[in-house]
Simulated scan of single mutants.
Amino acid sequence: MRQRAPFEHCELCGRQVPLTFHHLIPRKMHRRPRFQKHFTREQLNAGIWVCQACHRGIHKLYDEMTLARDFNTLAKLQDDPAVQRHVAWVGKQRRRKG
């Protein structure tokens, strides 16, 4: 059973649209000793609720290792200029119907 988003708005762009869960440390990195050593299970499974456009944008901007190493908190994502530009663009987009 899929967990429902506890937020009504995207945590990055603020739009009220269907949300997806973004692991702050991508699941692909969870088995690597470096991440197992430095992060708890709760930290590895932590994430944010974002719209599909923001989620796709995050993964287009950075690979999994960069996300895990450099952008593993909401604040770090929000402070990044490239993410800020993408979020500003997403915020101007209309929601697709259907």
Rank of each mutant, 00 (worst) to 15 (best):
R69I: 00
M1Y: 01
P33S: 11
R85W: 06
W89A: 13
T20N: 07
T73E: 07
C13M: 07
R94Q: 14
H86F: 04
L74W: 05
C54L: 14
I48F: 03
W49E: 10
M1D: 05
L74F: 05
E64D: 15
H30G: 01
P26S: 03
L67F: 12
H59Y: 13
A75V: 11
F35P: 04
Q43M: 04
K97R: 14
V90D: 00
P33R: 09
Q43T: 01
Q93T: 10
K97Y: 14
L24V: 11
E8T: 12
A82L: 10
K60V: 09
M65W: 13
L12S: 08
V50A: 06
Q93A: 11
E42S: 06
F7Y: 11
K60F: 05
H23I: 04
K92C: 13
G57K: 04
P26L: 03
A53N: 09
F21D: 01
R2W: 10
G57L: 05
P26I: 12
N45A: 15
Q52E: 06
R31K: 10
E64R: 12
G14K: 11
R15N: 04
H59V: 13
E64H: 11
Y62G: 08
R31P: 03
D79V: 00
D63W: 00
Q36N: 07
Q78D: 09
H9K: 13
L77V: 09
K97F: 10
L77D: 07
P81Q: 04
F7L: 04
Q78S: 10
Q93W: 05
A75T: 15
M65P: 01
I25V: 15
V90T: 14
